[in-house]
């Protein structure tokens, strides 16, 4: 069994299929114990101090797996964690096979003018985010690329899967939840043109589903106002 010491993950990844090269992470497709898997590798950022960088990268990896577990325990779909290597900062996740990002799905559905389908999706997004916030999970990077749509299941709610929890944290503060929604709103409206009404549907569904929504929506309104003022000055 001649193999050098240290983690074997980088060797595996050098032969794996690269799906996405991001600013913080690379996402690969690979097999894990015979099952289709996704490997998310957080690599060092050269401009950061190495010790600080190591700490931050480690923290993101830990936050990601913790929040996934917390969501799943509450019945909110997120990929199963198969294996974590804290030395190379890699997470092996269940691949949601045949899924597409909500971003791609909205773009293609908009083209074919299936408004009802989009409204149903917005409703589901509102519901799943309400449940996530009721568990005090703040996602930290809500975009339509960080939600997957499982294909084939007719089962209403469970076909949305949340991913990319690296910036997530636990908080019960309405302000944090409001900012989380604000980040999504910004991303949503800039990625998907002419969707103001659709996003309102999402918020309406969020409001109806969350037990603590009124304080959150109030904060969202405040944050919007602040954002506008800031952009007027800057």
């Amino acid at each position: 069994m001649a193999q050098e010491k240290g983690t074997a993950v980088p060797v595996l990844l050098s032969k794996a299929e690269l799906l996405k090269q991001g600013a913080e992470a690379r996402v690969y497709r690979a097999e894990f114990l015979g099952k289709p898997a996704i490997v998310k590798e957080r690599f060092p950022k050269r401009y950061r101090h190495p010790v600080l960088d190591e700490k931050l990268t480690h923290r993101r990896t830990v936050q990601e797996v913790r929040s996934i577990l917390r969501c799943r325990k509450a019945g909110i779909s997120a990929p199963v964690v198969y294996f974590v290597d804290y030395t190379s900062h890699c997470i092996f996740l269940e691949e949601i096979v045949g899924s597409s990002t909500v971003r791609d799905h909205i773009a293609s559905t908009q083209q074919s003018c299936k408004d009802q389908e989009l409204e149903r999706l917005a409703q589901q997004m509102g519901q799943i985010l309400a449940r996530m916030h009721d568990e005090d999970v703040i996602h930290g990077d809500l975009t339509t690329s960080n939600m997957l749509l499982r294909r084939g299941t007719e089962d209403e709610e469970s076909d949305l899967v949340l991913i990319d929890f690296g910036l997530s944290y636990i908080s019960a503060l309405p302000e944090d939840k409001g900012v989380d929604l604000y980040v999504l709103e910004k991303a949503f409206l800039s990625t998907h043109p002419n969707t103001e009404a659709l996003f309102q549907k999402l918020l309406k569904s969020y409001t109806a589903s969350s037990k603590k929504s009124s304080a959150v929506i109030k904060k969202l309104d405040e944050v919007r106002l602040r954002g506008r003022k800031r952009s007027m000055v800057g």
Partner: peptide
Amino acid sequence: VTPQEEKCGTLLDAVVCRMATKDVL
């Protein structure tokens, strides 16, 4: 494992997820 967790996955999923993450809980 709670009943709600079994709504979004199998018992195996729940078990594997805990095994894989227990070092940081």
